[in-house]
Amino acid sequence: MDNAAIEEMFEGLGPVSIRRMFGGKGIYHQGLIIAIDLRDEVMLKADAVSGPEFAEAGASQWAYEGKKGKPVLMPYWTIPDSALDDPDELRKWVVMAFEAALRINRDT
Rank of each mutant, 00 (worst) to 15 (best):
M1E: 01
M1P: 01
M1I: 04
D2Y: 09
D2M: 11
N3W: 12
N3D: 15
I6Q: 03
E7G: 04
E7K: 13
E8F: 09
E8S: 07
M9L: 14
F10P: 00
E11N: 00
G12I: 04
L13T: 01
L13N: 10
L13Y: 09
G14R: 08
G14P: 00
P15H: 13
V16F: 10
R19G: 06
R19M: 13
G24F: 13
G24H: 10
K25Y: 12
G26D: 07
Y28M: 15
Y28Q: 02
Y28C: 11
Y28V: 03
Y28R: 08
Y28K: 13
Q30V: 07
Q30L: 15
G31H: 03
G31N: 10
G31Q: 06
L32M: 15
L32H: 01
A35S: 02
A35R: 08
A35W: 14
I36E: 10
I36G: 03
D37I: 05
D37F: 12
D37Y: 10
L38V: 00
R39F: 14
R39G: 12
R39S: 11
E41P: 08
E41V: 12
V42T: 10
L44N: 06
L44C: 06
A46G: 06
A46L: 04
D47Y: 04
D47H: 02
V49P: 00
V49D: 05
V49S: 06
S50T: 14
G51T: 00
G51S: 13
F54S: 02
F54D: 00
F54M: 08
A55M: 06
A55L: 15
A57L: 13
G58K: 06
G58Y: 08
A59P: 04
A59E: 02
S60W: 08
Q61V: 08
Q61K: 07
Y64N: 02
E65K: 10
G66P: 08
G66E: 04
K70S: 03
P71V: 02
P71A: 07
P71L: 05
V72Q: 02
Y76F: 15
Y76Q: 04
T78D: 09
T78C: 09
T78E: 07
I79G: 00
P80R: 00
P80M: 05
P80K: 04
D81T: 05
S82H: 13
S82F: 09
S82C: 05
A83V: 02
A83C: 07
L84S: 07
L84V: 01
D85Q: 01
D85M: 09
D86T: 05
D86A: 09
D86W: 06
P87Q: 12
D88H: 03
E89K: 11
L90P: 02
R91Q: 13
K92M: 10
W93T: 01
V95E: 10
V95F: 09
V95N: 06
M96C: 12
M96G: 01
M96L: 13
E99H: 11
E99R: 15
A100Q: 12
L102Q: 15
L102A: 11
L102N: 01
R103Q: 06
I104A: 12
N105M: 02
R106T: 07
D107G: 04
T108R: 15
